[in-house]
Amino acid sequence: MKTVITCKGNNQKAHFDLRFGRAGWFCLIDDESGDPTFIENDQVEVTGGAGVKTAEKMVELGVQKVISGHFGPKAKDLLDKFNIQMVMIDDDDQSISKIIARLNK
């Protein structure tokens, strides 16, 4: 299974990012291949529709679960359409490694 966690930087020490469409980076975890990879978000600066574009990216990546702080209504609609599970965390003080550890429990 593939999971994405929104984050502020490109390594496991980076903090979790509450924003979905305008998150700095995406941490992609593939259960089969093991190590997380980091993908930069190219939608950070667009004026509108960042959420939808990011949701589109999630579908393209074949992700089944997304962990972020807040999903806008349009992003939510699209993720729902493709049965992608949305997990919301309200705390951006956590590092990515901590969240990954929680996932693996």
């Binding site: 509108g48 529709g49 960042a50 939808v52 949701a55 589109e56 579908v59 393209e60 699209l78």
Partner: peptide, 20 residues
């Protein structure tokens, strides 16, 4: 220019978001 269109080739998805 308004990011209103979503097209995802591998899954054959194409849709326009009217609110954008």
């Amino acid at each position: 220019e308004f990011n209103a269109i979503v097209v995802i080739p591998p899954v054959g998805f194409a849709e326009i978001n009217s609110s954008l």
